[in-house]
Amino acid sequence: MFSTLKGMLVTLSTTLRKPVTAQYPKQHLPLQERQWGFPALTWDGDVGEPYCVGCMVCVRMCPTQCMSGEMIDNPLHAEGKSTRRKIIGEFEINLGRCILCGICVEVCNFDAIEMSHEHEISHYQRNGRRTDLPLLLEMGKKFQRESNWLPPTKKKAAVAAAAKAAAAPAVEAGAEGEAATAEESSEKEAEA
């Protein structure tokens, strides 16, 4: 009897609380800054071409083999407008197969692929989400616009420079140099 009353009291006190649930399709909770959606290709607005040069590192490192691509000679380079000698010609990601592991972003040396915030894409067909180059670039442009995107290598260099400027020169500089060589070697290996 007593415990029933106690239980009722708990019920009464909790009915007055604000709900924590969100009615999903109608109400969207804010995404975290780092939230990972499907991978997208980034667009170099300065030159007017994708960052991707088609080195195929992501294609080879993908655990599910959901990507394919083709490298072509860059016509803009021939005209002298771009520093990229090669450029991506065809690229396709089967987003239905992608497991969002982020390995492609990690191995990319050209800031060419990013995990966008695109996550609400579903399709009735199993192969219905094979996404080609223009669409991937569209996703990438949208992501770049919305997140004030900076190329990760530039960002990293800026952070490192700031750290170097802030820290005492003697000990820190050595550590920094070591880290830089480690990075370089790992990048070289990924390219090889």
Partner: peptide, 12 residues
């Protein structure tokens, strides 16, 4: 977790 790793479950 999402803020740290980008994913809610499959973090990698």
């Amino acid at each position: 977790f999402e803020a740290v790793t980008g994913a809610r479950m499959m973090h990698n």
